[in-house]
Amino acid sequence: MFEARLVQGALLKKVLESIKDLLNEATWECAATGISLQAMDSSHVSLVALNLRSDGFDKYRCDRNVSLGMNLTNMAKIMKCASNDDVITIKAQDDADTVTFVFETPNQEKISDYEMKLMNLDTEHLGIPDTDYSCIVKMPSVEFQRICRDLSQIGDSVVISCTKEGVKFSAAGDLGTGNVKLAQNANVDKEEEAVVIEMQEPVSLTFACRYLNSFTKATPLAPQVQLSMSSDVPLVVEYKLEDMGYVRYYLAPKIED
């Protein structure tokens, strides 16, 4: 028996919104420690890795590990039936071919349940090595979203260049060029407004805008985003979920021909 109850059900709705652009289907791996998911987009350029720790749920029971393969478009249809203030419970029997979502209003006067068919998915699991990144940038997630949106008007790719002084995002296209520079700025009133750079050595990497824009669907999950970069390895874009876990995206760089 698997059962996970989340009073803050809106969080689950936001998590799904943050991945359904990139993934049509994925397997939610449920274990005693929590729920995790790892999947690449269909072109194998980006990867989503998320973790929701069991202690972040209000009630969590997982007698044995279960893999819940889901069509995320269908899951999103069901999640749209939950109000933002609903309590959400996910339930599945061991070896079941369906999953049940229960939505309760805070006053418990309305209780809805939706049963969805599960899928058997061939899941490729990639081993992601621990990496000491040359540059780690922490910045407001809304700012990152804005920059990705703005520069995707200019070109298909963004060059992210990071030095001790700051981080620069650049795009070039038929109409011309655009650059956005952010200086390191830790002395702000609110922690979530800070731009903090930890640099071992400068890096400059090129990434496709359309994936970066998809990653920014996670913006409502966290006030800050962390970009981890080293030369010639995938970028990591991480949104930390308070007391719960994380949503991470990996993106392969573009290289000079």
Partner: peptide
């Protein structure tokens, strides 16, 4: 110009 590489180039299948 640049070309896109894929993730399995970096991460091994487990």
């Amino acid at each position: 110009s640049t070309s896109q590489i894929t993730l399995p180039v970096f991460f091994a299948n487990q």
